[in-house]
């Protein structure tokens, strides 16, 4: 098991380097010059002086060849140094360290919320296929799926303000146990809930037709016992497989939710780094994003044999 995890980690290193090289190259050659941006984006009467800008670029080491810059970046990274932001001069690591817990709290809470709500509801819908209950649950899930987070966010927020006049706008970060977190959490969970609910429902419907379930039901085993004993485990299989997709949905959704609700997390950091072509920050976020998704995939692969014993024979082959 430990060697398996180590091997996965080793496989991840070249891939993350490749991804970072690609992102760095695209940003370096196409996305604009961060120093020029400082002067160009400012309104009006700005002293845009090419000589001065070259002097700044020299001092920031941005005039070195592409590969030299990338290599020195990776060299620093190996020593645990993410460099400094080009636009604010702050240590990227400090920025990440402040932003990551916000996103992490939000993401983990959203996943838990999703699991707690979506799996039971999905099972109920699946067990009562084509009943009124099924339609209501499925219809709600599908409707949630169809509303983008950046529409739902501001709508809910401003509607709340209209319904509860005088209330402070739930904007900004107040920690995990703050009422301010409720709205972003709900908005962020909309899409994952819909996703998992539908997967669960589809899986339940499929499992219900399996012989062992039919047998159990024919033997008169109570529905609930059947559901818990025979259905839950196979149903979790495709759901767990989707964990990576859920992670991505949440990571993407977090970008909008953090923007809309003013949460100082990684998503907001990403957007500002992108608009400023702040390479060190973009790279650090790529690195962390890549690590997170890799870790969640690893987790899926470790959980997979536990959930579906039939698939365990392939583990050695991977």
């Amino acid at each position: 098991m430990l060697t398996y995890i180590l091997r996965r980690l080793l496989l991840w290193v070249p891939s993350v380097l490749l991804v970072m090289l690609a992102v760095y190259a695209l940003a370096f050659y196409g996305a604009g010059d961060p120093i020029k941006l400082i002067f160009l984006r400012a309104p009006g009467d700005v002293a845009y002086d090419p000589v001065k800008i070259e002097a700044i670029r020299d001092q920031a080491g941005l005039n070195r060849p592409f590969l030299v810059q990338f290599a020195s970046y990776v060299g620093n990274l190996v020593q645990g140094n993410f460099g400094n932001s080009l636009t604010s001069g702050r240590s990227v690591w400090a920025m990440i360290k402040a932003a990551a817990p916000v996103s992490f709290t939000l993401g983990v809470t959203a996943i838990l919320l999703t699991a707690v709500i979506a799996i039971p509801l999905g099972m109920v819908a699946g067990l009562k296929q084509n009943s009124r209950t099924d339609y209501v649950i499925l219809g709600t899930a599908v409707a949630l799926w169809a509303i983008p987070a950046y529409v739902a966010g501001p709508l809910l927020m401003v509607l709340l303000l209209m319904v509860l006049p005088g209330e402070a706008v739930p904007y900004g970060w107040g920690g995990l146990f703050s009422v301010k977190l409720i709205l972003p959490l709900i908005v962020l969970s909309f899409q994952p809930i819909a996703l998992i609910l539908r997967q669960t429902r589809a899986a339940v419907i499929e499992v219900m037709t399996e012989d062992y379930v039919r047998t159990a039901r024919a033997k008169g085993v109570p529905e609930l016992v059947v559901a818990l004993r025979h259905i839950l485990r196979p149903v979790l299989t495709p759901v767990v497989t989707q964990l990576g997709l859920i992670m991505i949905t949440i990571v993407n959704g977090a970008m909008f939710v953090e923007l809309v609700f003013g949460l100082p997390g990684l998503g907001r950091l990403t957007v500002s780094a992108l608009t400023n072509s702040d390479f060190p920050v973009i790279l650090a976020i790529t690195f962390i994003g890549s690590f997170l998704v890799m870790a969640s995939n690893l987790l899926v692969d470790l959980l997979y044999p536990l959930l579906d014993p039939r698939a365990s024979d392939v583990k050695g082959g991977r």
Binding site: L11, V19, L26, A31, I248, I282, G289, S290, L292
Partner: peptide, 30 residues
């Protein structure tokens, strides 16, 4: 299988929005 899964993991581990924004910013204009 191992190669495909490695490749899949690599692709999945790219923050999507980031990649699309960067691609858009760098290649659209040329």
């Amino acid at each position: 299988d191992r190669f495909v899964m490695w490749f899949t993991d690599m692709t999945m581990s790219v923050p999507q929005l980031l990649l699309v924004v960067v691609i858009n910013a760098s290649l659209k204009q040329p």
